[in-house]
């Protein structure tokens, strides 16, 4: 028995290591590529030790096809979508989780159902409507359609956090003469700060990574970085190093958020999954 153990854990570690490598290696490879010259990229066998260059980054930041304006577009759209999502989601989730009102079950189901809508079904009417009112290629148009997937998701995720608070909290606060609104503000919201942070992160990530809405409803003025990356590859077919540098830059914010908020993200995924929310 004891003799088998080290071998067993070694085998386990090996399997886990392979899993880890499969998920991480493509990204590491991309990172390495972004520092290569285009000649090194196409070397066979692949070169592991090469003279790193910052030319690719210089090109995608300052060059003719700079993606800086696109990063700015992404930032504006994602931030405003996140802001409005949280603005509407937090109060609604609180009502859904804690208060009694007519047709509560039905309204909960409605929110859940809106989350199931396939995006392609929404984009056609949005395209037609925004075209009529001149809303194509505007930040407000894109922000509006981002609410369609982020708001139901955020409501359900927040509901699960509100549900964790004992009911006595509100009762004590009401007896302490706080009233409903101040009970929410002083007693309840501080206790779901973690949940608000997690939900904000998720909403922001989803908005940042969105592609289909952005490619149809965006344009020359509003072109998020996901669309820019896509156009990049169509134009610069074989310039992989530049593509890799652009991708690294575009994904830097989400990777950083992912690493820093790692623990919270796992909790958010689990909460969402167990309680029944979450498209992603």
């Amino acid at each position: 028995m004891t003799g088998r153990k080290p071998f067993r854990s070694l085998a386990l570690a090996a399997v886990a290591g392979v899993g880890l490598a499969v998920w991480v290696f493509p990204v590491i490879w991309g990172l390495l590529t972004s520092f290569k010259t285009e000649r090194d990229v196409l070397a066979y066998p692949p070169v592991w030790f090469f003279k790193p260059t910052l030319d690719n980054y210089r090109e995608v930041i300052f060059g003719a096809s700079s993606i800086m304006p696109n990063l700015w577009s992404s930032l504006v759209v994602s931030t405003s979508a996140t802001f409005f999502t949280m603005l509407f989601a937090i109060p609604a989730a609180y009502a859904l989780a804690r208060l009694k009102y007519p047709a509560k079950r039905a309204s909960g189901f409605y929110v859940l159902a809106t989350q199931m809508l396939p995006p392609v079904g929404l984009i056609i009417p949005y395209y037609l409507a925004l075209q009529k009112v001149g809303g194509l290629d505007t930040y407000s148009g894109l922000t509006l359609i981002y609410l369609t997937f982020s708001l139901p998701f955020a409501i359900w995720l927040m509901v699960s956090y509100f549900e964790d608070i004992p009911f006595e909290m509100e009762e004590a606060a009401l007896l302490d003469r706080a009233g409903r609104l101040r009970t929410l503000w002083y007693v309840i919201l501080p206790q779901v700060r973690g949940g608000i942070a997690v939900t904000t992160i998720f909403v922001f990530l989803n908005a940042w990574n969105e592609f289909m809405f952005a490619v149809v409803l965006g344009g020359n003025r509003v072109r998020p970085v996901t669309v820019a990356m896509f156009n990049f590859i169509s134009v610069e077919q074989t310039q992989w190093a530049k593509v890799a540098a652009g991708a690294m830059l575009a994904m830097l914010p989400v990777i950083l958020i992912g690493l820093f908020a790692q623990r919270h993200i796992v909790k958010g995924l689990t909460v969402g999954a167990v309680k029944g929310g979450g498209r992603r």
Partner: peptide
């Protein structure tokens, strides 16, 4: 009347202290 308008105070079984 609402709880806050009754001028009553209560100690809960779980204490219901505000954790933050």
């Amino acid at each position: 009347r609402e709880p806050g308008e009754r001028d009553v105070a209560m100690v809960f079984q779980s204490y219901a202290l505000y954790p933050h």
